[in-house]
Computed example of a mutant assay.
Amino acid sequence: MRRRNFLRASVLGASTVAFTGSLWQDAFAAPAQNATGPYGPLQAADANGIQLPSGFTSQVIARSGQSVPGTSYTWHSAPDGGACFADGTGWIYVSNSEVSPNGGASAIRFTSTGAVASAYSLLSGTRQNCAGGATPWNTWLSCEEVSLGYVYETYPFGGAAVRRPAMGAFKHEAAAADPVRKVIYLTEDETNGRFYRFIPTTWGNLSSGTLQVLVAGSATSGSFSWANVPDPDGSPTATRSQVSGSKAFNGGEGCYYANDTVWFTTKGDNRVWQVNLGNNTYELAYDDNLVNPGPAPLTGVDNITGSTFGDLYVAEDGGNMEICVITPDDKISAFLRINGQSASEITGPAFNPAGNRLYFSSQRGTSGSSSGGITYCVTGPFRT
């Protein structure tokens, strides 16, 4: 694979990306290979059952069905996709609820020290809100993972959620905003799902625009183009079946944008895809079948996010309940592992604006039930 340059990215506020630091040569060529992690080996499990590298600690932030500590707000069941938003000297962590028919999204506001200040609802009464994505204008896109599902734009800083039908009706999974091209990328959780982009008529306003689908060959790398989806409402023909030559992906999951690149995961084949927007090419950033020597550290790939340093963090749905890190020099390793929760999945990884706290959830916790979700925070010497 041709190697490219990668500029370290930091997320400011919701997901507005600024680029700092020196130019990284030979970064993020595909696919990533097994290596010792940048933080060293995992230590014995802590009191929360989480194995972390030396110097890192975990804490429980909230539990499904219980009041968020310090508030009277009851945390939702089946916590899923999440993101952080800068809030003055503190920040807000938002999280979806992947239940139906009473899904939605909630938020927790933190002070500058990481203490809980308040918790509240952003969205309710929707269906199986799985992942989503933050926008540069400080809204959270909550995506319904159901047939003919919708994207809902929610407002962590106040305001009523709004359904955005122009973004298509299909089994939505995740979203990632590209402020350079002024588009939103979207994944589809079907075994023959597609990868989309939505071009708003006016950037910052998702009420109208054009839905497009990626068109490419059947190979795992090559060039691509975009084509308009004729009927974004997906009826009577599903959006994924409307454009001849659109590329199928096996179970689209998480999605993350930085520096002219968008990464997304597919759970059906345990892959992380890398779309190079500067030259309209795509390739594999990770494939569990191409790790040599094995065994592959990452299986059940799901949500994905990035750090201020430029590392990618990928959560497992199943596997051995790990969050794995892919470094810019194409090395992959386990960053953390949750023990005793094999009937769950890890969801919603997101860094606070400073990049020194990582939030995530175990969707079904130790009980294996959607009512047993646990939301955590890991603090430590993250590379920034």
Rank of each mutant, 00 (worst) to 15 (best):
R8Q: 10
V11I: 14
I199P: 00
F56R: 04
S223E: 11
V213A: 15
A27Y: 08
D317E: 15
N259Y: 14
S208N: 12
W140R: 01
G65L: 09
V378L: 03
V325N: 01
V60E: 10
N280R: 15
Q43M: 10
N303L: 10
H76M: 04
I199R: 14
P136K: 09
I332S: 07
T139N: 14
Q212D: 13
N48S: 05
L284D: 07
G278R: 12
Y93W: 14
D87M: 04
L23D: 00
N303M: 11
S223R: 14
V151G: 04
T220W: 13
S112C: 07
G193S: 02
I326H: 00
A160S: 15
L141I: 08
S15N: 14
N280K: 12
A248I: 06
I61N: 07
N276M: 09
N339P: 02
G380S: 02
T139P: 03
A83I: 04
P295E: 10
D233T: 15
A115V: 12
V378D: 01
F19G: 02
R357N: 07
G149Q: 11
N259F: 11
F249E: 00
M1A: 13
R163L: 08
A29V: 12
Y39E: 05
R63P: 02
N102F: 10
F249S: 04
R127W: 14
A115R: 13
E316T: 05
K171P: 06
P297T: 10
T265N: 02
Q43T: 09
F170D: 02
F264M: 03
A105G: 03
